[in-house]
């Protein structure tokens, strides 16, 4: 039914629109626009510039390769174990014990809950504010 009605309506709209024509702006449109164009500047597109330049990458590569080479050739003389690298196993164990033993007080729980609610309220308020701008 809808499709049947579509065709005559389309034809009718076609006929109506044929009767209208494109409108022309005022005679000095181009002239007054060109005055503004002369004053304006073409903005250059933003060219992507990498955060770390090629020379920096080369330097980093040389440094890493040099250090690796140094470590491989001199590995017999000293060990880094325990000097810069602490025992990871004990560190994680300590951390887990401390974390599980920690208890939050009811007040801090309520406070953080309330803070989260306020955060959500703020989000909608800020969204409204920016929309209005």
């Amino acid at each position: 039914m809808k499709a049947d009605n579509n065709k005559p309506l389309e034809k009718f709209a076609d006929k109506m629109m044929k009767e209208t024509s494109v409108e022309n702006p005022s005679a000095n449109f181009t002239a007054s626009l060109m005055v503004q164009v002369e004053a304006a500047e073409i903005s250059r597109p933003i060219v992507y510039k990498p955060l770390i330049s090629k020379t920096a990458w080369v330097l980093i590569f040389i440094a890493v390769a040099g250090l690796t080479g140094y470590v491989i050739t001199n590995s017999q003389e000293f060990s880094l174990q325990g000097v810069i690298m602490p025992d990871l196993q004990t560190v994680t164990e300590n951390m887990m014990r401390n974390l599980t033993a920690y208890k939050f007080s009811t007040i801090s729980l309520y406070a953080s809950g309330l803070l989260t609610i306020m955060l959500f309220v703020q989000i909608s308020l800020l969204k409204n504010l920016f929309n209005k701008r």
């Binding site: 164009v37 500047e41 073409i42 903005s43 250059r44």
Partner: peptide, 10 residues
Amino acid sequence: FLKVYRSLAE
């Protein structure tokens, strides 16, 4: 048109 001119390079 002015907007188009300004960003023509893009």
